[in-house]
Amino acid sequence: MSEIAVAESLAETQYQEPQPRRSRRRHLSGALRLLPYVVIAVYVLIALTGPLLVDYDPLSTSVTDRLLSPGSVKGDGSTAWLGTDSVGRDVLAQVVLGARTSVIIAVLTVLVSCVLGLGLGLLAGYLGGWPDTAVARSIDILVAFPGILLAIVIAGLFRPGYLTVIVALAVGGWIGFARVVRGVAMSLRERDWVDAARVMAVARIRIVTRHVLPFVVGPVVAMATLEFALIVLAEAGLSFLGIGLPPTAVSWGQTVAGGKEYLETAWWISAFPGLALAGLVISVGLVGDQLTARYGGRRR
């Protein structure tokens, strides 16, 4: 909080004599509420500018620099602020570039899942009948498998790469969106303004886009943030297992996996990417909770 803001909040507590304590607390919680947004902004910024910030080649190893502790000076004179891994690669660089991988994959997967879930959910919820039955049964079948197991199978079947990971995660990702959208669309279908549009013989596609879709956006955005957090975790999980992304990619999951044999002697290899992962997932989750509180329950 800047000095001006502090001064303002103090001034306000003085003027609002009756409940000074309450007012101060509200300001504090207001600032705390913004914290996850700030954290996410930092992650996104790092993801966008990563390659400019650090110079890192996953294939270039240096045996003399292996397992250096955080803050050590490497052979080439530079400082390894977060230490180095078992083949002498910089951990900070891996954390920075891992953010890029995580954010890119999560954004694309959420986008694909969202479009798919929105389309199928609207189709099922608004039309009802056999399209609804088809979508609802497909969801039932997919839900019968654990999502991560399905992702592991799909990622294992195809050549490692970004596309494989996105497809593998989106296969389970759209379900959440489709369920939420289907539910909202089903209730909106019965609304008078939708009936009024039908009586006016407004084209179906227009009824869906103008009279149903706008009311689905809130819950979908809330859903998207929660899904984003889950996908960041799932991607790290796949990478930890060594499937999905090729070994040349930089991913938090891979770095964590690389450090698992040195947990006692070189804790920093696994700890820092793990912390970076936790920070992002928790922040996104907090934002998601706020959005869900605002949009999730209210279905107009």
Binding site: D192, M200, A201
Partner: peptide
């Protein structure tokens, strides 16, 4: 389609609240 039109019971919910 144009010849027959309807006025609904609930004045508010028969209009899209976002329009």
């Amino acid at each position: 389609q144009r010849a027959i039109q309807m006025v609904f019971q609930d004045p508010r919910s028969s209009l899209n609240p976002r329009m």
